Amino acid sequence: MKEVELNNKSVNLLFEQAIVLLKKLIAIPSFSKEEDKTADCIQEFLEKRGIPTHRAMNNVWAYNKHFDSLKPTILLNSHHDTVKPNFSYTLNPFEAIEKDGKLYGLGSNDAGGALVSLITTFIHFWDKEGLKYNLILTATAEEEISGINGIESIYSSLGAINFAIIGEPTEMNLAIAEKGLLVLDCVAKGTPSHAAHPNNNNAILKAFRDIDWFSKYKFDKVSDLLGEVKMTPTIINSGSQHNVVPDTCTFTIDVRTTELYSNAAILKIIKDNIKSEVKARSMRLNSSYISSKHPFVVAGLHLGRTHYGSPTSSDQAVIPCPSLKMGPGLSTRSHSSDEFIYVAEISEAIQIYNSILKQIL
């Protein structure tokens, strides 16, 4: 496929476009549920290049020019919402500052770098004829809050999708598995009484016994990529004064799941083993996994990338097709003060995305 090969001039042009777009996005506040202006910016960027766009709420998407419904389809997805800046920022989070090879700004690493790299990769392939796969680009909302008005809300409108690349900071390695998430609100119930009198039905003590189970229980199946299911108590509340035994104790458990168990299966095991009432906030965020023999993974490994299991969640959790997570930047920079991405990471990402896709398209 000579016609889609990247030369240095093409790489430089895509890189320059990516940096221009990322700087514009950084300058626009785009907290989850407030991404309308960045959606406008992305639409304008694509349409100025002759690419028709579609939009629902704050989600923007586009199809390659020669889309053929008889062909399989690859989805290129990343998000344009951000968390709110923390109080440790020393720089203006909405000013794109390029210094010492770094581009600073809120959302630069999570996931602006991946987003603009995927957008420019899509632009490169957009009008190419004779591709084996269709391409769909989606720039979506509410990822940071796992909101229902993001990729999940438009997925059924996109058409059949065979595989998805989710742009998140992975140092351009292949996250072929990702932990899911269950947040459990638990209530231990007891008998209220005066603290001076005997009470064998103390809600706090009952909660502690269940929390002790959470801290010690080991699930039988251990994932080669993601390790064990991890259950962590994170919140506990009970009582109002020192001399009253309360009738309830509430506590929250953060459960990070693996591909070996569905969220429903894990919830059943928990309910079978503890006495407190348990309610899951959501069952949507399941673990995901794709085979290391998938053509995209094989192509990435041929380029010297590695594969691994990711402990963090992304839009993979709410889409039903096979997917992996891959993008420039470092996950530990996400949500940090004075967030940044190296500009060279974006140039590398464009080259790697294009090189892998060229092998399978």
Score class of each variant (00 low, 15 high):
Pro192Ala: 06
His294Asp: 07
Val229Lys: 02
Ala114Trp: 15
Asn273Ile: 04
Asn202Arg: 11
Ile42Gly: 00
Pro322Asp: 07
Arg55Asp: 10
Lys221Ser: 10
Gln359Asn: 08
Arg256Ile: 00
Lys206Tyr: 11
Lys271Trp: 07
Ala114Phe: 15
Asn354Leu: 06
Tyr217Ala: 06
Thr120Val: 13
Val222Gln: 12
Ser223Glu: 13
Glu142Asn: 02
Ser215Thr: 13
Ser108Lys: 10
Tyr63Pro: 09
Pro328Thr: 10
Val297Ala: 02
His242Phe: 02
Leu21Asn: 05
Tyr104Arg: 09
Lys271Glu: 11
Gln359Arg: 12
Lys128Pro: 00
Ile145Thr: 02
Leu260Arg: 12
Leu115Pro: 04
Ile352Trp: 06
Ala264Gln: 13
His302Pro: 00
Tyr133Pro: 01
Ala196His: 11
Ala39Pro: 01
Asp220Glu: 15
Cys41Ile: 01
Ala139Glu: 03
Lys218Glu: 15
Arg256Asp: 05
Pro295His: 04
Ala39Gln: 01
Lys325Asn: 12
Ala141Tyr: 01
Pro322Trp: 10
Ser157Phe: 01
Glu3Ala: 07
Asn149Glu: 07
Asn162Glu: 14
Ser193Glu: 10
Ser215Trp: 11
Leu106Pro: 13
Tyr353Cys: 05
Met283Thr: 00
Ile274Met: 04
Lys48Gly: 01
Gly304Thr: 02
Tyr217Asn: 08
Arg284Gln: 03
Ala317Lys: 07
Phe125Trp: 07
Gly327Thr: 11
Asn202Lys: 10
Val187Asn: 13
Lys128Cys: 04
Ile161Pro: 04
Ile136Cys: 03
Lys37Pro: 02
His307Tyr: 13
Asp210Trp: 11
Ala62Tyr: 15
Asp224Glu: 15
Lys189Gly: 10
